[in-house]
Amino acid sequence: MHLTPADIAALGEIVGHYPHKRAACIDALKYMQARHGYVSDQSLEAIAVLLDMSPAELDEVATFYNLIFRKPVGEKVIYLCDSVTCWMLGRDKIARKIQDLIGIRQGETSTDGRYTLLPIVCLGHCDHAPAMMIDDRLFGDVEPGQLPGILEPPD
C-alpha cells in the first residue's frame, strides 16, 4: 500500500520527535491503527521502509503489544480482564453472556462488524472486579444483567 501524502507528513512529524527514526515505531504503528483500525501487512511494510527497519523487526514490535492489532477488529473492542481477581469473581460468566448477546467468543468479531471481544491482563481495577473496558471506557463490578445496557447504550 502506498501511504498518502497526508500519512507521510503525519509520520514525518512523529519521526521528528525522536533522535533515531526507529524509536518512532510504536507511535507510527499507533498512527496507522488510528487511521485504519488495525495495522495491515501493507501498512507495516510501508512504515518499516520509512523507519529504516526490516518488516520482520517491526512485526516483532507490533506483535509484542496486545493493543496493536495486526488483524481487522470491529468498530468497538471489548477488553475483558482475564487476570486472577476478575477470574475469581466471575469474568467467565461475563464472557458467556457476551456470547449469548452478540454471538462472539474471545478473539472473534461480530458478523455485523460492530464488536470484537478480547481478553486482557489486569486492568488495575481489581477492587471492582470483574472489570472490562470498551475502547477507552472502563466498567467495574460488571454483572451479566448489565451487559445489554453496556453494549447497546440507550441513545
Binding site: P55, A56, T63
Partner: peptide, 19 residues
C-alpha cells in the same frame, strides 16, 4: 538480510520469517 524475527511474546513467541 534481516528476514527473521520473533513475533508475539511469552508462550506465544515464535521465530519466523515475516512473510
Amino acid at each position: 538480510v534481516p528476514e527473521l524475527g520473533a513475533t508475539s511474546r511469552g508462550e506465544e513467541m515464535e521465530v519466523g520469517t515475516y512473510v
